[in-house]
């Protein structure tokens, strides 16, 4: 009896895992195009294919990988590179903090596995699921995360190998895929907000835009992203009755 239950459980896990993988598909254009661009930039920063592969597999963070390459080219000291990476990726802390409460019932190792692969995109897809009040579990999240991870790594390696032949990936507009995705994710978030609250949320969006524009005059943009998000979320709590 127990064996049967376990068997059914495993089958269910497999279905939700593949559902997670399917839900990842819309974000894949972003991963692939940015990943290829990353491989190209890495190669032109004199990194070997092995180094680019390791960077993508171990750091697994788009913006940070570009910045690491830029700092390497500039000949920055190791401490500066590592510290900058820490600051650039600090926003993942916010993302993980938002997602973690939904996975508390799972074992520690499963939680670490999910947390290690959280990205802006996988966060976006999950936040969308949360906003729609749909249910999801660890298998779904793993399906989403692992699919993204595989495609990101393959794309980076692809870019590193074939980078020599593609001189300027910007021309195609592929670099815009990430922004387009965030636009869609923002719209999808707003779709799930009660009508009476919509004006309030639009005001918050205006605050973020203004803060970003002001903070970017004095601070690197990755710090501005972190600060404006935290400040406006606080304004949201204070003003929302």
């Amino acid at each position: 009896m127990y064996g049967l239950a376990k068997e059914i459980n495993r089958e269910e896990d497999l279905t939700t895992f593949s559902q997670g993988a399917k839900d990842c598909v819309p974000t894949l254009i972003g991963y692939i195009s940015i990943g290829i661009a990353m491989g190209i930039v890495g190669a032109s920063s004199n990194l070997s294919i092995l180094e680019i592969a390791l960077l993508s597999a171990l750091v697994y963070a788009g913006a940070a990988q570009f910045i690491i390459c830029a700092l390497l080219v500039a000949g920055s000291p190791i401490s500066v590179i590592i510290f900058t990476t820490f600051i650039v990726n600090l926003r993942n802390f916010l993302l993980s903090m938002t997602l973690a409460p939904y996975f508390t019932k799972y074992p520690l190792m499963k939680n670490i596995g999910i947390g290690a692969l959280v990205t802006d995109e996988s966060f976006g897809v999950t936040a969308n699921k949360i906003a729609k009040k749909e249910t999801f579990n660890a298998s779904w999240m793993n399906g989403l995360n692992v699919t993204a991870y595989i495609f990101w790594n393959l794309s980076c390696i692809l870019g590193a190998i074939f980078g020599k032949w593609i001189s300027n990936p910007e021309v195609l507009g592929l670099d815009f895929s990430l922004t387009a995705m965030f636009l869609a994710l923002l719209v999808l978030q707003l779709e799930n907000i009660a009508h009476s609250k919509l004006k309030f949320y639009l005001t918050l969006i205006v605050y973020v835009v203004i803060l970003m524009l002001i903070l970017c005059m004095f601070l690197p943009s990755y710090i501005a992203i972190l600060l404006s998000t935290m400040i406006v979320a606080t304004i949201g709590v204070v003003k929302d009755k």
Binding site: R91, L94, L95, M97, T98, P101, D120, F123, G124, A127, A131, F176, L178, T179, F182, L183, L185, L186, Q189, L190, Y201, L204, I205, V208, V209, M212, L213, C216, P220, S221, A224, I225, S228, T229, V232, A233, T234, G236, V237, D240
Partner: peptide, 25 residues
Amino acid sequence: IVIKWLSFIPICIFTALIVDSFIIQ
């Protein structure tokens, strides 16, 4: 109150990332 704060994070961070894409430093 923390959960409430976290509920604002998605909208704020998506907006910030969009703005980031059209700012040149």
